[in-house]
Design a protein around this nucleic acid. Structure first.
Lengths: 341, 341
DNA sequence: ATGAAAGCGCTAACAC
DNA sequence: GTGTTAGCGCTTTCAT
């Protein structure tokens, strides 16, 4: 039989309440009593029963995901994973809500965060760009005792408790080394596509990519960024433009979303399967393009893991458990046709 | 507030005990009472609190990892992760033990499994090769009500409840496509290293690799498997032999463990950084070799994730919760210098 | 066939 | 500072 708080109390000659205070590092216990209790804990090899503790607390955790209302496969996946986790989180006494705010509207975001704080939320996972208004709102949240994790895009350390996402410079570097190695020795031209070079994570990917190309693969020319704004026709025109201006294209690196039209544009230009294409995020379309060879690599992240990690971390921060750091490291997934999940 | 057994009892006009009997499908309840209780369950949307149930039952889960006593970095990592998870599992009412059995001894393995069954274990995670004796022992285990997951190497579906590991054919295919793309158009020679071609997972990797090379990169010649048995000197001699027999080497695919001597052998042959090297498993040595460019790619698996997944699945199967399938999918990690974790 | 009551291991008011 | 006591949601004797 494993020792319980009763055994500790008896062994240390104190009451249950005192044992509880010591175990939870609550104030109001004399130093030598603390020592006595801890000695008993060690002597008996006591381990706290998390389930019983949570039951007794009957504490519920109210958590919220605050996501921009953007219509990409990535955002849809994020919403779906949040919804999918809800029942499991409920069994774990965590109530998850999903708040969507207009993209690029710091004011709307701030209003939502303030509302959540007022409603007594315990933790918030927020995906947002860094703006002064957002920083202020997050600071108010945290001052109100709400735990905050940033999701996908990080903010300054001081404004959040934890970041759930990948290192985008490393993602860009990975794309770079794969592009360089796939293209080989012969000089080539690489077109870089971006949705819009606003987001910090896209800039970081670009940075990592450029650094690796310059340092390790100087034989290739990386053309200026082309923006396609999620528009297939525009994407097709950008490819045509690049071909006209610079000549044949050996590689395409698609840095963010906005690759929905890319496969079509490549087919129209007769470049499908003849150009090395590296993209980010594994959407259903990306999957198809990988399967038929139009795309070569997708560098992606397990959205489900991110959402689960955010919930685990918020729960732990809000006082409902411990975290296993290795479990919360978000991995960069390199997906080829051969290892499509 | 989520409904509890009390709410169900009140709504159905019965006592707690009766609700419990119905919920757990125990006999001694009239048909129409069962119907009334179930109606209340549906009406109130009751979900049972597994933690509270296990607490009341004071049910503990005894789980065991049964691993071969082999001295590789991979096995060491596995043991370390099991040890690291123990305290967390303990808080979760799961007692994890680690049993090591002599490698390649089905008799010893069977004896260990029988002992665990006799001791009343709830679940076992076993890493073993498929032999008749092993199959029989597992069948006895499962007949005794013990839940079984296979770890790293799978066995026939009928002999286990779940498999925790990767698809090794896909791993080999991934190695193949990366090798083919990295080497490029010019014909090359590829040496394949194996620890010993006994284990089924190594054979599967080889199969996947060969298929991709034949189908998509016929310009390259894949040399017969060289075995190095974890011996650095032997590895060096094998490389020398291959060079002497076949001429220059463009690629090396190291299929299993036994790559400890490979880096040295490559350096001695003057091939470090001039040969494309793809290996499996990310050990400390592999990490160094990736950092200094001796190795190009490591195809690996997150051992910590595997161990945690095995424990979660065994607990769930033994009756202590539910599983999220996506969370238990073990991913194939493609690690380059640029995305070293 | 059904119910009352005493826990499981821990926490949290509220006393002292 | 420290102790008493009443639960958390569910299970399990033991009565009826």
């Amino acid at each position: 039989m494993r020792p319980t708080v009763h055994d500790i109390a008896r062994a240390a000659g104190v009451s249950l309440a005192t044992v509880d205070r010591v175990l939870n590092a609550r104030p109001g216990v004399r130093g030598d009593t603390i020592v006595r209790v801890n000695a008993a804990v060690d002597a008996l090899g006591y381990v706290r029963d998390a389930a019983a503790a949570n039951l007794a607390r009957s504490r519920r955790f109210r958590l919220a995901f605050v996501l921009p209302r953007v219509d990409t496969a990535f955002h849809a996946a994020l919403r779906a994973e949040v919804a999918a986790l809800r029942p499991h989180a409920a069994m774990d006494r965590a109530l998850i809500e999903l708040a969507e705010v207009p993209a690029e509207s710091p004011a709307a975001l701030a209003a939502t965060l303030d509302r959540l704080a007022a409603e007594g939320i315990d933790g918030v996972a927020v995906m947002a760009a860094e703006t002064p208004q957002t920083r202020d709102a997050l600071r108010r949240l945290r001052t109100a005792g709400v735990r905050v994790v940033t999701l996908v895009a990080d903010l300054a350390q001081s404004d959040r408790d934890h970041f759930v996402g990948i290192n985008n410079v490393a993602a860009g570097r990975t794309a770079g080394v794969l592009m360089g190695r796939f293209l080989g020795r012969d000089p080539g031209r690489i077109l870089v596509f971006a949705a819009a070079m606003s987001a910090r994570d896209q800039a970081e990917r670009r940075l990592g990519f450029d650094r690796v190309m310059q340092a390790d693969f100087p034989q290739h020319a990386v053309l200026p960024t082309a923006e396609a704004h999620d528009d297939p026709d525009l994407a097709a025109r950008r490819v045509a433009q690049a071909l006209a201006t610079h000549g044949p294209l050996q590689g395409i690196y698609c840095i963010g979303s906005g690759k929905r039209g890319l496969a079509r544009a490549l087919a129209e230009a007769g470049l499908a399967r003849r150009t090395t294409v590296i993209v980010h995020e594994l959407s259903p379309q990306t999957r198809l393009a990988l399967e038929d060879g139009t795309f070569d690599v997708a560098i992606t992240v397990d959205v489900g893991h991110m959402v689960r990690s955010a919930v685990r971390v918020l729960r732990a921060l809000a006082g409902g458990g411990t975290i296993i750091p290795a479990q919360e490291r978000i991995r960069l997934d390199v997906v080829l046709r051969e290892n499509l999940p």
